[in-house]
Design a protein around this nucleic acid. Structure first.
Length: 208
DNA sequence: CAAACGATTTTCT
DNA sequence: GAAAATCGTTTGG
């Protein structure tokens, strides 16, 4: 069952980021279906979050889609090479989004390996935000699409990961965001092989 | 119009 | 572990 709009329109972007763990991300491209279970996400909290593209209310051609009502995709190119997939959340006018950082593949393995140029199944097939979009065939053409009716859809699953299994830590590659780089806005499933290896800044403890 | 810069991955040492 | 690859977006002149 496809997740309803109400799932995405939650005003708490960190809650959506956590709830996306364990959900099923599916793409159907040129009639070919590939899918995986989301195991790692990061929340980007709108205009008050220095690490967010829409920080300070910035509105450009690229970030415009972040201001849409929750439930659409935000795909952008990073480092000139990689496509990164985000899920836009919250109400129209509030530019919150969740970056999908890793999935555990569960359908269309052969095609995913082929797209990645790999011979055998290793976690490297989808254990990073740029890797999973390549494996799923997601590109610039998939920006701003509905996550309920387009080539990209996200589905409910039978299992809901227990809270104890969810690890919260700092986001990757956002050191320039000052204090906001220390926010525990990265979430992943403990002990999952497909979680990306990179690390953010050290997590600040209450007394540090 | 020119220049710097990434929410990364891969390759090489 | 370090550095290169690579280009659209953003920002400044």
């Amino acid at each position: 069952m496809i997740l309803p709009l109400s799932f995405y329109q939650n005003p708490q972007v960190t809650e959506v980021a956590k709830m996306l763990l364990g959900k099923r991300l599916v793409t159907v491209i040129d009639g070919h279906r590939t899918a995986g279970i989301i195991v790692e996400t990061e929340a980007y909290a709108g205009i008050t979050d220095r690490a967010c593209h829409a920080f300070g209310g910035r509105r450009t051609a690229r970030t415009e889609i972040m201001y849409a009502s929750g439930g659409v995709s935000y795909v952008y190119r990073c480092y000139g090479i990689h496509q990164l997939l985000n899920v836009v959340t919250n109400d129209a006018g509030v530019p919150d989004a969740v970056l999908i950082r890793a999935i555990e593949p569960d359908e269309g393995l052969t095609l995913m390996l082929q797209r990645r140029g790999m011979e055998q199944l290793l976690p490297m097939v989808t254990s990073g935000p740029g890797m999973l979009t390549q494996a799923l065939g997601i590109g610039a053409a998939h920006n701003g699409l509905s996550l309920q009716t387009s080539a990209i859809t996200i589905h409910e699953t039978d299992v809901c990961p227990s809270q104890e299994l969810i690890v919260a830590t700092t986001r990757v590659g956002v050191a320039a965001a000052g204090d906001d780089a220390y926010l525990p806005y990265r979430f992943y499933l403990a002990n999952n092989k497909y979680v990306s290896k990179r690390k953010g800044l050290p997590l600040r403890t209450p007394n540090s």
